[in-house]
Write a protein that binds this DNA or RNA. Structure first.
Lengths: 244, 244
DNA sequence: CATATTGGGTAACTTATGTTGCCATACACT
DNA sequence: AGTGTATGGCAACATAAGTTACCCAATATG
């Protein structure tokens, strides 16, 4: 994948909520980024290590996670193509979590120094980064709510709805559903459940006719009902936040 | 409380991780803020409403929460004196959560426009705000892990340790513990538990000798063991992150 | 080819946590 | 003083979710 494609996608990400003036756009496109393709399960960030670069997902999926003392894993966020994986690394000395690819992925890798320089000298780029972080924090809050106060069936429905929404934003949604790029164990780790119980919950939603399945391809014949089951409202995704 | 005290505290918050040049400090102190005292349970932000101002907690405690369809509440973060409650409001059109005081509190209220202007024209202030957000996101991730993958006893121990650490940072810790400004029901809402089970868990920690109690005053005779029980490591609080 | 390995599926059983309900104390309000 | 309301405490019982232990199919791997 050519480096220009790389930076186009980063730019699109930054401009999702607020357009940038031409000078800023050029500065973004002039970043010294390079592309890189990696297999599934590649570590992009390791807890406790100092960050080395800013990574943007061009294609493929990724997740962040932490391991607790018992050895259990909790996935704390999912990332889709276009997501900037590590604004964290901009100003924090050590990573507080791991990040790993879920699938094969193409990455844009930007040196931290260049990204810092950009954010420092371009207030509107800084604002775009800030907005992205605000929205990420909002999603984290909703995940806390999901895990803390909803039962397994609702949690799963909520995750499926969120993924559908986010796929939709970046134009990756098919008319009849999508392929969720996660094993049932990974879904469990994202929802604070065991894989066995995820399996039970999938079966439940399936038998109720709320989802259909062909392997990992999931269809949503009654999206309205599914959203109700998952108590899902996309407000927390702040989809339409353009500010003058 | 005088307005100057107000802004001093905001400045101290912003400079926690990176000192600001004199011009920036003066700009912060020149913000058109005003003080306000409010009783417990005062709403500072309401989900779905457009933000009206940036609030900084001068004294007292606050929390953010969301209500799910079943009526259950999940507290998604706690805030101590010095915390800026709403950088969110800087660039997002609608609040995605509620914020409410836990106790009597003194607030510094800054108009959004002034805060935006400051962040736009002062890159180093923008950086300080960004760092604050990055750390807040890190805490949110740790809460997801806590709720998703630890049992009630560990969750509670973790919360107590986090609170101890954060009280310590701002110089509010007493040698022998602190008064946790929350009812058992609120603790439950923060941990994804019921108040009954919080009561059980407090009793358990108490009987093991890991905490002592006089009303809401909690002591930590064996902080090391308590941290082990809570699988607590303060790395995620990014306490020492000064970057050149 | 043989055979690990991974992922999905499911049953039987266990357990952590939730639910309901009740009592006691402390305080706030009239 | 008297009555309500919030909070902590606790026991009895209910249940959602975890644990363990299998099977099967698909697909890497030697």
């Amino acid at each position: 994948m050519a480096d220009t494609d790389t930076l186009e996608l980063l730019l699109r990400k930054l401009e999702r909520h607020t357009p940038l003036p031409e000078a800023d756009r050029r500065a973004v496109l002039a970043l010294p980024a390079h592309g890189r393709s990696v297999p599934p399960a590649t570590y992009l960030v390791r807890e406790g290590e100092p960050p080395t670069s800013c990574v943007v997902l061009l294609s493929g999926f990724a997740f962040r996670h932490k391991i607790v003392e018992s050895g259990a894993r909790q996935i704390v966020s999912l990332h889709l193509p276009g997501d900037a994986l590590d604004f964290q690394s901009l100003y924090l000395r050590y990573a507080d979590h791991n990040a790993q690819t879920l699938t094969r992925a193409d990455l844009a890798v930007v040196p931290i120094a260049a990204m810092r320089e950009l954010v420092t000298t371009r207030p509107l780029v800084a604002r775009a980064v800030l907005m992205d972080l605000l929205i990420e924090a909002s999603i984290l809050r909703e995940w806390i709510v999901n895990i803390g106060r909803r039962n397994a069936r609702a949690r799963l429905a909520h995750l499926l709805c969120e993924f559908a929404c986010r796929m939709d934003i970046i134009g990756l949604s098919e008319p009849d559903g999508y392929a969720l790029p996660m094993t049932q164990e990974q879904i469990g780790d994202a929802l604070g459940l065991t894989s066995v119980h995820v399996n039970r919950s999938i079966k439940a939603l399936s038998q109720e006719g709320l989802i259909t399945r062909k392997g990992r391809l999931i269809g949503f014949p009654h999206i309205k009902e599914l959203r109700e089951v998952g108590d899902f409202s996309e407000l927390y995704l702040h989809l339409d936040e353009a500010i003058g």
